[in-house]
């Protein structure tokens, strides 16, 4: 692992993290650090613990061991009030979008702003309109989540995750269930979010095109290893990883990608 603990502090530092449910260890000894502004992918096959790792990182589950820190500050061991403060700097897009079903899209995006900003109502409305336009949902402000498609929910969820201009954005399978065009647009949107806000992105995905398209770095988890089996840039790992599982996974991506440099061996 290429942990670098020198200044400036990494946006995310995970040290020896152990994730367990009911005493059953799913992941063990996970360590990595993500510098500010990186687009960091967590990849791996089904059931290898990608979402589990994400939920431990954002504090929904308490780790069975190890720690998670943000910008040089310990998150795992922090008191509950401080943890809530740190959580406010996250934007999270959940796998199921998790829009609040009793609120319209406008209200969904506005809620974090209402809770944590002193914006006036017109300013808030403007921010909401801007965020929804960014994800291509202008005109759907007054729809309820149940009235829009799965892909639109995902995008609305992203708009909500971006509402407070978070420093770190976690996305759990952002492009699952999206058509290829929307999915590429989403990648473009994520790149622009990084450019504009300097945000750090942590993305759980197995969408290979996205991985090759926008990832600065990937960490690959494996169910049997109960941990990471690769860490690096996908371009390097695709041919140079010592682990055949990693090469295999990424080369399938290579052949699916129109930007592939050469067909798989």
């Amino acid at each position: 692992m290429n942990t670098n603990a020198t200044t400036p502090p990494a946006a995310i530092a995970v040290e020896g993290l152990r994730c367990a449910y009911d005493g059953r260890v799913v992941l063990d000894n996970i360590s990595f650090s993500v510098p500010r502004g990186q687009i960091f992918f967590i990849v791996g096959g089904s059931g290898c613990g990608k979402s589990t790792l994400l939920k431990h990182m954002i504090g929904l589950h308490q780790p069975a061991g190890g720690r998670v820190g943000y910008f040089g500050e310990d998150f795992t061991g922090a008191p509950a009030a401080r943890r809530r403060e740190i959580m406010k700097t996250f934007g999270v897009l959940y796998q199921s979008a998790a829009l609040w079903s009793s609120l319209t899209l406008r209200e969904n995006v506005a809620l974090p702003l209402e809770e944590y900003t002193a914006l006036t109502r017109p300013e808030r409305e403007l921010v909401v309109a801007h965020k929804l336009a960014q994800v291509g949902l202008s005109g759907f402000e007054d729809y309820y989540p149940a009235e829009i498609s799965g892909g639109m929910k995902k995008r609305a969820g992203l708009a909500r995750a971006l509402a407070l201009d978070p420093q770190i954005i976690f996305l759990d399978e952002p492009s699952a269930g999206l058509d290829p065009v929307t999915s590429r647009n989403l990648d473009g949107l994520l790149l622009s979010v990084r450019e504009n806000l300097g945000a750090t992105l942590v993305i759980v995905s197995h969408e290979l095109e996205s991985i090759h398209g926008i990832a600065d770095r990937i960490i690959m988890l494996d169910r049997d290893a109960r941990g990471a089996i690769a860490d690096g840039h996908p371009r390097q790992l695709v041919h140079n990883s010592p682990d055949p599982r990693v090469r295999d996974f990424l080369q399938r991506a290579d052949c699916a990608s129109p930007a592939a440099e050469k067909p798989p061996a």
Binding site: G59, M87, Y94, S96, W100, E115
Partner: peptide
């Protein structure tokens, strides 16, 4: 239902 749809998680990570 909100819990199954991760809506509660979304509240928690917003610090609500």
């Amino acid at each position: 239902n909100m819990k199954a749809g991760e809506e509660i998680d979304a509240l928690v990570t917003l610090g609500i």
